[in-house]
Amino acid sequence: MTSPKTMKAVAFDRYGPPERLALTNLPVPEPDVGEVRLLVHATTVNRTDTATLRGHPFFARLITGVFRPKMKTLGMDFAGTVDAVGRGVTNLQVGDRVFGLSPDQFGAHAEFMCLSADAAIAPIPQGLGFDESVVCEGAWYASSTINLLQAGQCCLIFGASGAIGIAAVQLAKSRGLHVTAVVGSRHVELANRLGADRVLNFETEDFTAIGETFDLVLDAVGKTSWFRCRPLLKKAGIFAATDLGPFWSNIILGAVFAMTGSRRVRIPFPVDAEGFVRDLAKLMEDGQFQGIFDRSYALDEIVDAFRYVEQGQKTGIVAVSVRHDPEG
């Protein structure tokens, strides 16, 4: 079947609120040498997308564009089918069902996208639909700190109900770690179901006063601080946060500790997206990882999806259905 000449895509040309986004018609991209074109069936809206739309933090604009965004379409997570291949591509074929991550160029909030055939792409595990396979963004950030630990060590995950926290619990268990999950009342059952060894309800108890110490404390929602969590850390324990912290304290403390030769305070900066996606696909195939989804929006409802994610109350992943397939 011949692909159309234009596609629906969500575009923006200025930083700002979700209202900056507009569903528009753009030319269907053609794959270059070594590239594949994907027919996108599903994507997500996540904290990375909302922060990039806002141009936050400001120093990130050195990469995304200081005054105006360099990219026109957001969307890191994708799942779809290979629609066309460029010259020299041998590892993927038209019709392959794939999922993955596009952390450098984004572009998944559209009906088609092109990316390198050697990018962070993997086959969708047997039995999973497209909407169940857009699971990478939160897990990628979680992996960069969870992978610092070895089997038998212990971690506390504060906010184990968002995309990063839910992924962190599962990745930690897959590595043989002892996991303490901290959540609100409505997520206690979910944390238990994910396999956490201990679940604390921050609404009814002070999780910092439990009298235990951990090799890693991960603030997966950016709502606590190293100062508050310091009693929870072992002598060489690591505090990792997915936000800059009050008055950029996590950045400042990370730099101070680094000058002393320590990395006790970190903000996740994950690398090797390609290797990560391959490893995640294996965990999904083995039943050690699954996406937990809050809700799904259609592509033309994406402004509402951004508004919802910005509320900071989502449970797991917010999916966006781009194309529907009878077998997906």
Rank of each mutant, 00 (worst) to 15 (best):
V221W: 02
G222M: 12
K223Q: 15
T224H: 10
T224K: 13
S225D: 04
S225I: 09
W226V: 07
F227D: 09
R228P: 01
R228Y: 03
C229E: 04
C229L: 07
R230A: 00
R230T: 01
P231N: 14
P231W: 15
P231F: 13
L232T: 01
L232C: 01
L232Y: 06
L233E: 07
L233W: 15
K234W: 15
K234P: 13
K234T: 14
K234Q: 15
K235F: 10
K235L: 04
A236D: 11
G237W: 10
I238S: 08
I238R: 06
I238N: 07
F239W: 01
A240T: 08
A240L: 00
A241L: 06
T242Y: 11
T242C: 12
D243K: 05
L244Y: 07
G245A: 05
P246K: 07
F247Q: 14
F247T: 13
F247G: 11
F247L: 13
S249G: 05
S249T: 06
S249A: 12
S249I: 02
N250S: 14
I251T: 11
I251S: 13
I251P: 01
I251W: 12
I252E: 15
I252T: 12
L253Q: 09
L253P: 07
L253G: 08
L253V: 03
L253C: 05
G254W: 07
A255M: 14
A255N: 10
V256D: 10
F257K: 03
F257A: 05
M259N: 14
M259P: 15
M259V: 14
T260M: 10
T260I: 03
G261H: 14
G261I: 10
G261R: 05
G261T: 13
G261Y: 11
S262V: 03
S262G: 03
S262W: 00
S262Y: 06
R263E: 12
R263L: 09
R263C: 15
V265S: 09
V265T: 08
R266F: 13
I267N: 04
I267V: 09
I267D: 00
P268I: 02
P268H: 09
P268L: 02
P268E: 08
F269H: 03
P270F: 00
V271Y: 02
D272C: 06
D272S: 11
A273H: 11
E274A: 10
E274G: 08
E274H: 14
G275S: 02
G275I: 04
G275T: 02
G275A: 08
F276L: 08
V277W: 05
V277M: 02
V277R: 08
V277G: 11
